[in-house]
Amino acid sequence: MLSIKNLTMSYGGKNVLNNINLEVKKGEIIGYIGPNGAGKSTTVKIMLGLIDDYQGDVVIFGHDISSGDPSYKKKIGYVPENAEAYDNLTAMEYLIFTGELYGMERDVAELKAERLLEQFELQDARHSRLSSFSKGMKQKVLITSSLLHDPDLLFWDEPLSGLDANSMMVIQEILAQLAAQGKTIFYSSHIMDLVEKISNRIVLLVKGEVVADATFEELKEMSEEGSLSGIFNQLTGFTEHRSKARDFVSIVQGADVDA
């Protein structure tokens, strides 16, 4: 399905990604986690063909993506980070446009988009501009746009930001059912509880290197921590959250901080 071999990406003399290897099988839900700036988004951008001066091999659907032929993207769905979209368009216009870019027929895309938006209870807002949407509503539109063309592989970068607890549960369930149907899902998130619950495989990236690649159960066995955020702290070498917080609060209150 997806295979990354010795992927290295350097930027300004610095290695942003360092020799990454990853084999993804059909039907897997992969939680791609790591601290800010670890290289998660860069990896996703490489796989989507946004960056192409990398070293190593990236093969998707048995197709080496460096060939320059964009047709492999037909079966990929993508939710970008920061909810980037053309805000001046209405939800329906945006969805139809992306659907068409994936090669769908206009009326098919329209019908499907309407029905999907209805499921998210956005039918009344569907002809309003995205710029008037709340963050959560916009995120639902972007998730819809990534699924409209029934892709086999999903890249979701922070798909849950701005969603309320109920919507998160819906998305979580959608993910599980899509995976059960044989879709492969590759997503990154900072919400550890959720990653713990929905991924059947967790890849942890730190400073451009894969430091862990296993199921949650395996990770738990390897470390003494019981939760994924504990494991995350341990593997990223971050232990001083309590003292950092204490210092921060005392600075807010105007006190001198002792070292």
Binding site: L48, G49, P70, K73, K74, P80, Y86, Y102
Partner: peptide
């Protein structure tokens, strides 16, 4: 650069 993230992630040639 917005075009890049929105359009180039779709099967559209450069």
């Amino acid at each position: 650069v917005r075009d890049k993230n929105i359009i180039q992630t779709k099967p559209v040639s450069r």
